[in-house]
Design a protein around this nucleic acid. Structure first.
Lengths: 235, 235
DNA sequence: CGGCAAATTCTCCACTTTGGTCCAATTTTT
DNA sequence: AAAAATTGGACCAAAGTGGAGAATTTGCCG
């Protein structure tokens, strides 16, 4: 039995993992991501996943131990992709002006949230009520992503680019507008006609997020409670 | 077999519905709302619902025909509550200034979204990928709610209170920040420490939404494309 | 290059859950 | 009290679950 993906070296000679096995693992992982994002954890059967992957279902047990571990592996895989893309794209602008960094961040976030809608779908599926899976998700992937972002946000508030108030709350709002809306693309397309598969629509979303959250005409203090629109021509 | 809740009068003497039956229907409906909001449609079993309601599971078939119809009945019930509360509370301010109307709307929306988190949870569960249920949800409940709101939003844009851009998109963003965040309360509580069960947190959310989306310093034109923060001291 | 052991896949099974039906028993309404 | 409305219990077919082993590849050794 394997379970481990990053295969460590502990026993004397744990023979190399066969190539075909990483293929089936990959197939299972992407099938799982897709299936879970549609039906949620409870609503998705391992057989359905195996079928989508074109693989016999006992292989799930063999490669991932059980449904729960498969879910975690799938989530980890998709988050890794997302984070890598985000961090890499952000590194280029590390020493740009804070305001531009924010703008780049939003655009990048929107771009990848659209490329990989399953990520936010899965979050939405899990995050609405407490569970062990949610705790795990938060500890393993959400918090590590949030903390640095919130720190940057606080800086933006200090210089008056972002509106005052609880930075964590502010970030959640931005995330809701970006990832949340993109995850709900099917509904939004039907109700409003906006099709995020068209690049212009995606740009419009990013533009609006930036203009709404980072318009930059806020008093450059962080202590002030948000009350009404106050401006000070920081620009 | 009953099926119909609003019982019409077509046959000669369709004897009155018994009192105990409306009780079990009610119990089933609220159990269904709760269960579906947690597990989604596929992830919730009719037996689970019956158990929560303290009722024998074949009664679901008797009262609602099948799982799908039960889901629709539950969604309808919860939307009706929500809409009634929203409309009633809004009617009081019908001839206040547009800006105040917007403010009241946001606060009311946040308030009821918090009171009835199941509503937005169910939307999140269903809206992330196409399905017959989603189409039905949109036609029956979402669109009727959205259309008048978008109209008001356009007015707010015209007078410069709301930022320019596609009003439908703007509304979706606001909805994401209000209902979306409230539906994800468990996650947000763990990641950020913000507990929306505390009234102050709820107020802070409403305040921030208002200050971000209705700060009121936008050029009073609707044709302009959102590009960057522009202000014109409309106040 | 041949063979052996480990790694991987396939076949089959035992068990539970699920949505739904059927009909007898039990209230209610009239 | 009769008839309709409602409920309870037993039952079904289909689908879901994890798992045990046999069968088959594949990598590694000489």
């Amino acid at each position: 039995m394997n379970t481990d993906i990053g295969r460590g070296s502990d026993a004397k000679k744990p023979r190399k993992q066969q190539k075909r096995s990483v293929v089936t693992q990959q197939k299972l992982l992407s099938a799982a991501v897709e299936a879970f994002s549609e039906g949620g954890f409870k609503g998705t059967s391992t057989r359905d996943i195996a079928d989508r992957a074109g693989v016999h279902h006992p292989l799930i047990t063999y490669h991932f131990k059980n449904k729960d571990m498969l879910w975690r592996a799938a989530v980890t895989a998709i988050f890794r992709e997302f984070n890598i893309a985000l961090v890499k794209s952000l590194a280029e602008f590390e020493n740009s002006a804070p305001r531009q960094r924010a703008e780049v961040f939003v655009r990048t976030y929107v771009k990848y949230a659209h490329q990989q809608p399953a990520l936010h779908k899965i979050i939405l599926q899990e995050a609405s009520h407490p569970s062990e899976r949610l705790d795990w998700l938060i500890d393993s992937h959400l918090r590590p992503l949030f903390e640095p972002v919130e720190a940057s946000l606080e800086e933006l508030q200090r210089i008056g680019v972002a509106p005052p108030g609880n930075p964590a709350l502010l970030f959640q709002m931005i995330r809701g507008c970006a990832g949340g809306l993109l995850a709900l693309a099917p509904e939004i397309k039907t109700t409003t006609g906006i099709d995020f598969d068209e690049p212009e629509a995606l740009d419009e979303l990013a533009d609006m997020i930036i203009s709404v959250f980072f318009s930059g005409n806020h008093r450059a203090v962080s202590a002030a409670t948000a009350e009404s629109g106050q401006q000070s021509t920081t620009q």
